[in-house]
């Protein structure tokens, strides 16, 4: 954090590029994972994350606190994923939900999940109402606390809990229906 502040104070073009670089190195992979979970397509996810960093570079001077860069770029990624999903819906694309790659079955003891296709619950998560899926992404992909999620999405902590509960409940119901 302190590194960000020192760089930010210089407020020159090179300092901006350097700050974007620092945030990029630290957060690109995590943000890419977030975007893949949100849109289900690695190419689209890469576009969203790169676009968010371009936006960060453009708006860095507008951020009052350089430490806000991380929150800004996270929010920008969510924003762009949201736009991508909406564009897909608008274009009525019949895009299948994509699996990135089947990872190792990490919990063979979980017979239920083993029966399911990997990513099926994530795919269901993408079908949830926007706020529910974003809250779940913050809590379970970015592993943010309730307070951090509330700050990032600019909603109350009570809303975070409510959307988390509703989202998880909807996923549970989906599993029971498909059983």
């Amino acid at each position: 954090m302190g590194e960000h502040r020192d760089i930010g104070r210089r407020s020159s073009e090179s300092a901006r590029a350097e700050l974007v670089d620092v945030v990029f190195r630290r957060h690109y992979a995590a943000l890419l994972r977030l975007a893949v979970v949100m849109v289900g397509d690695r190419g689209a996810a890469e576009d969203a994350v790169q676009d968010a960093f371009v936006s960060l570079h453009r708006n860095l001077r507008a951020l009052r606190d350089p430490d806000a860069a991380e929150a800004y770029v996270r929010s920008a990624v969510l924003n762009r994923c949201r736009s991508w999903v909406r564009r897909q819906a608008t274009q009525r694309a019949k895009r299948p939900l994509l699996l990135v790659r089947e990872g190792p079955r990490r919990t063979p003891e979980d017979a239920t999940l083993a029966r399911d296709e990997v990513g099926s619950l994530v795919a269901q998560m993408r079908m949830l109402p926007r706020r529910q899926r974003e809250v779940l992404a913050c809590r379970f992909v970015l592993e943010l606390s309730v307070a951090e999620t509330a700050a990032l999405l600019d909603i109350g902590e009570g809303s975070v809990k409510t959307h988390t509960h509703r989202g998880l409940h909807a996923l549970q119901q989906g599993i029971e229906v498909n059983r």
């Binding site: 990135v100 790659r101 990997v118 990513g119 619950l121 998880l168």
Partner: peptide, 21 residues
């Protein structure tokens, strides 16, 4: 039987674990 939270976390991990950067 795991909770829905645990199952979602594992499914996310399974999906994102396959994303190599």
């Amino acid at each position: 039987m795991s909770t829905i939270e645990e199952r979602l976390a594992r499914d996310i991990e399974a999906v994102t674990g396959g994303i190599v950067v």
